[in-house]
Simulated scan of single mutants.
Amino acid sequence: MQINFVSLSDVVRAIAPRVDVAEEEVELYSAQPANDGPLWEMLARRPARQCFQESRAAIQLLECLFKTSAGPRWFDTVLRGYPLQSEDARKEGRDELVRFVNQEQEFKASVERMRSPFARWHDRRFDGENQPARALDYPKMRRSNEIGFDRTELISYLVDNGVSYSPQLLAPPRTEPPAPSTSTACGQLPEVPSYLASGAVARAFDGCASWTKSEWSRMLGDAGPWLSAARRGPKTATHSPALWDPVIIARALAAGVRRKRQIDGTQKYIEVKTSLRRLDRVFEHPEMHEWRKSWEREREELETYQVDNTDPA
C-alpha cells in the first residue's frame, strides 16, 4: 500500500494559520520595526505570531492525537528510507509536540531576557539573527520532519475531530511540475503549486541579494531562520530532499535580509533588499510557472506597503 507521507512538522504548520492569537499579545512580544510602515510592522510581528500559533497548534494536536489509543498510524522515514509504520514514532511524536508547545514560553522568556536592563545585548534590536528568531529554527526539530502520517488518513482524522487546517499547506508536494494549463474546469479549484527542490530554487534566485547559485545551494543545505520558514517537507539523508516555497523566499528578499560583506577590510553584516522587478525575473524561470500567480498576488501586497527596494540588480 502506497503511503502518502506528511511530516509532523508540516501538520503543525498547516494548523497554525488557523489559530487565533490576540494582537495585543503579539505586539507585547514583538520587535520594534526596522523601518516605518505597515509592512515592516507586519514583519516585526511575524516571529512572535508564528511561534504562538505553532505552539497552540501543537496543543490541539496533542489533545486530538493522544486523547485515546485510537488514531492515525504513525510512520518513520528513517528506519528503511521510506515511511514505515512505527509505534516508537508515536512516542517520539508526542515528545516533539511537547517541544513545540514549550516553544512559546521559551520565546517569551528569551524576549524578557533580551529586554532586561542587565542583558548583555539589551541595546540590540530583534531581527532574523537574534535569540527570539532562533526559537523558530526548524533544524533543531529535525525529528519532526522525519516522522508523521499517511496524509489522507491524517486529514480524515483532523476533519472528524473538528481540527481546522490550511488545505494548501497539507497538499501533497509533486516532484515533477505538470504541463501549464490556461483553463480550469467549471467548479474545479486550481491546483496547488508544487514546492521546489533546492536545485531549482538556487537556479531561479541566482544573483538575488548578490548570492550566486552555488552560494544559494550552500545556504539551502544549511538553512538559517529566515530560509527555514520557506522549507516544506522532510530533509534527511535517507528520504526525499527538502522542498521550498519560493514566494516566502521572495517576500523575505524584498523586505531585506542580512549578509556578510567586506567593507574597508572588515567583514560586516549589511541589510540587502531585492527589488520587485528583479524578483519578477525569478518567476519567469520555467520551473516557476506554477508560482507566478501566487507571486503576482504577493507582489501586489508588497507594492501596497510600498517597500523601499534598494537592490537594482
Rank of each mutant, 00 (worst) to 15 (best):
T68S: 14
D95P: 03
D95H: 13
W40F: 11
P33I: 00
E41V: 13
F75M: 07
R49T: 14
R45A: 14
K67R: 12
R13V: 00
R73W: 02
G81C: 13
V21W: 02
Q60G: 04
L43W: 06
R46C: 01
V21I: 15
C51F: 06
G93N: 07
L79C: 07
C51N: 15
R73D: 09
L61S: 06
A48K: 05
T68I: 10
P47M: 13
F75Q: 03
M42N: 05
P47L: 11
A70V: 02
V98N: 15
V19T: 03
P72N: 07
L97W: 06
A14F: 04
R45M: 12
P38K: 09
L84F: 06
E96W: 07
P47F: 12
A16L: 04
C64P: 03
V19G: 03
Q53Y: 07
A16S: 11
K91G: 13
R94I: 01
S30E: 05
S30G: 01
K91V: 15
R45G: 09
A57H: 03
R56W: 08
W74Y: 04
M42C: 05
L62H: 05
D95K: 14
Q60V: 03
R46N: 06
D88K: 06
A57S: 08
S69L: 14
Y82N: 13
R45C: 11
L43Q: 13
P47R: 06
L97R: 02
T77G: 02
S69E: 12
L62Q: 14
V12M: 05
G71I: 02
A48D: 02
Q50G: 02
P33K: 04
L43G: 03
L28E: 10
A34F: 06
R45N: 09
L79R: 10
A89V: 00
A70T: 07
E41K: 10
W74D: 04
T77L: 12
E92K: 07
V98Q: 15
L39F: 09
G93I: 11
R18T: 12
Q85Y: 09
C51S: 14
A16R: 01
Q85D: 09
Q60D: 02
Q32C: 06
Q85E: 12
R73S: 11
L97S: 08
R46H: 07
L97E: 08
A58V: 07
Q53E: 14
R80S: 15
L43M: 14
A16Y: 01
A44V: 00
E96C: 13
R94C: 12
Q53W: 05
G71K: 08
S69R: 14
E63S: 08
M42P: 00
G37N: 05
Q85C: 06
D76I: 01
R18H: 09
R49G: 05
L39G: 04
G81E: 13
S30Q: 04
R73Y: 01
Y82I: 09
E96Q: 15
R94V: 00
I15Y: 01
L65E: 08
C64H: 07
P33G: 05
A44N: 06
P72G: 07
L39Q: 04
E25T: 10
R45Y: 03
K91Y: 14
P38N: 08
R73G: 12
L43Y: 06
R90S: 10
P33E: 04
Q85P: 09
E27C: 01
A89T: 01
I59T: 12
E25K: 11
E92G: 10
Q60F: 09
Y82V: 11
A22M: 09
L28D: 02
V98G: 13
P72S: 10
K67N: 12
M42K: 11
S86T: 02
